[in-house]
Computed example of a mutant assay.
Amino acid sequence: MPLALILNQTGCFRINKPLPIIYDHMKMPVLFLCFLLLPCTMQAQNMISMSSLHPGADTISANMKELAIRYPGLRKFGISASGFGYSDFDVKLDDRDFASGKIKTRRISTFFNTPAIKWKGNSLSAGIYYTYTSTRIKDISNKLPEAELTPVTTDRSTFDLAINYSRSDKIFDHPVVYSLVVRGITDGVNSFRRLNLNGSINLPLKKTGNTTFSVGLLALIDPSSPIPVEPIINYYHKFISSGLELIVDIPTGVNLKKEIARNAWVSVGSNQRSYTIFYDRHNTFLDGKVSYNTIELKSGAAFELLFAKNVMLTLDGGLNSFLSARLFKDGENYNNASIISSNKNAPYVNVGLSLVSF
C-alpha cells in the first residue's frame, strides 16, 4: 500500500502563547506562575483523562452539574463535529526530508461517562470515547527517490475505554485526592492496540464561594507522551464586579468565560487534546502495527447555550495548532519515532451537543 496511507495528519511543534487575560484586581501571584508553566505543560500533555485532573472522589469541589458546565470533559455524553482548513506540511523520515504538501482534516468525536459508584471516599466510573477522522492530502512534493507520497483521502476510527478510580483521603489532616485511570485504545478491528496509565495526586489549597485552587502531579505511562510526569494546576475565580470567570486547568487549557444571558456563555481561550490513529503497514519503511499520535491546541472563542435543563449546545472556532505529530512503530516512543510531521496552523470550526447531567 502507498506510504501516503500512513500519513493522514501532520503537526507543528511551536507553542502558542495563551490568549490575553483581563486581570480584574488580580491578587494571587499563582496566576502568573500558571501562565509561565502553560507552554511547558501544553507540549507535554498526551492522552490525559479528565478523571485524573478532576477525580470523582473530590468531595470538596462544586456540585457535579456546575463542574460539568465549567469543564466539558466531565459531562455525561457529548458529540461534536470539527472541520479544519488546508495547511502546508512537511514530513521527515528518519531525520531525512521526505515530502511536503497540503492537508485538510474533518473529525467527529463522541464520548460517554458512566455514573460513578461511590463508597467510603472511593469512586469508580468508566468513560467510552469514539473518534472518526477523515483526512485529505494533496499537492505533494516528494524528496526521497526511494519513497513516494501520493494524494489520498483516508478515513479512520478510534475507540477508547477508560476505567477511572479515585480516593479522597487526608495527609497531616489536609485533604488529598488520588486517582488512577487505565485506558485501552483500539481501532475497533483488532484487540486493544495501546494501554495507557494515568495516575495523579491532587492537593486542594483553597475553596471559597468564588475561588478554588488545587495543585498536584500527573504521572503518564504512555509511549507517545513527551514526558512521564507533569504538574497539575487547577484555578477557578469568578470576578464579582464583571461576572468574568477565569478557568486555569493545566495541562488541558486556560479560558476566560462570561455568562451573557441566563444559561448562555461566551468564552475565549486555548484548549488541548490528543488523538491517535492506528494502521497495519508492510513496506520498506514500516513493517507491522503503527500508530499516529497528534497533540493539538485550539485557540479561539466559543458560545454555549444550556437548554432542556441539561443539554448544552456548543459553537466554537479559531486557530488549530499542532504541538506534536509523530508516528510510532511497535517498540518506539516519543523520542525515537520514525516519522515526524510539521504543519502550519489552520482555522477550524466546531459544533457540538452534550448532556451536562442525567
Score class of each variant (00 low, 15 high):
L315M: 09
F285H: 15
K309M: 12
V290R: 00
F328A: 04
F322E: 09
T314N: 10
L313W: 00
M312W: 02
F322M: 03
R273S: 11
S291L: 09
N293L: 03
E296A: 04
D330R: 11
G318T: 10
G331M: 10
S321M: 03
L306N: 02
D316V: 02
F322T: 02
D287F: 01
K289P: 00
Y292A: 03
A301W: 02
H282R: 03
V290A: 15
N333P: 08
G318R: 14
F322I: 02
L315S: 05
F307R: 12
Y292V: 02
D287V: 01
L313Y: 01
R326K: 15
S324A: 13
I295A: 10
K309R: 15
F285C: 08
T276W: 04
S321A: 08
N283T: 13
N293H: 14
E304R: 10
H282W: 09
E296M: 12
A302E: 07
A325Q: 08
I277S: 05
E296Q: 13
G300A: 08
R281K: 07
S291K: 08
F278H: 12
K298G: 00
R281P: 00
K309Q: 14
Y275F: 14
H282S: 02
N293W: 11
N283E: 09
D280P: 06
I277K: 05
G300K: 07
F278I: 14
L315A: 13
F328R: 07
M312T: 04
V290Q: 05
L305N: 06
R281H: 03
N310Q: 07
F322N: 11
S299T: 15
F303A: 15
L305G: 00
E332R: 11
L315G: 07
N333R: 13
L313K: 00
R273D: 13
F307Q: 11
L323T: 04
D330I: 14
Y279N: 15
M312F: 06
A308H: 07
D330K: 13
F285E: 14
Y279V: 00
F278G: 09
A301E: 01
I277P: 00
Y279F: 05
Y292R: 11
V290F: 03
L305P: 01
E304F: 01
R326Y: 05
G318F: 11
L305Q: 09
E332Y: 12
K329S: 11
N320G: 06
E296N: 09
D280S: 14
G288N: 14
G318A: 08
K309D: 13
E296P: 00
H282D: 03
A308V: 09
S291W: 04
T294C: 08
F328T: 04
A325H: 12
S321I: 02
N310D: 11
K298A: 00
L305V: 06
L297T: 15
I295P: 00
A325P: 01
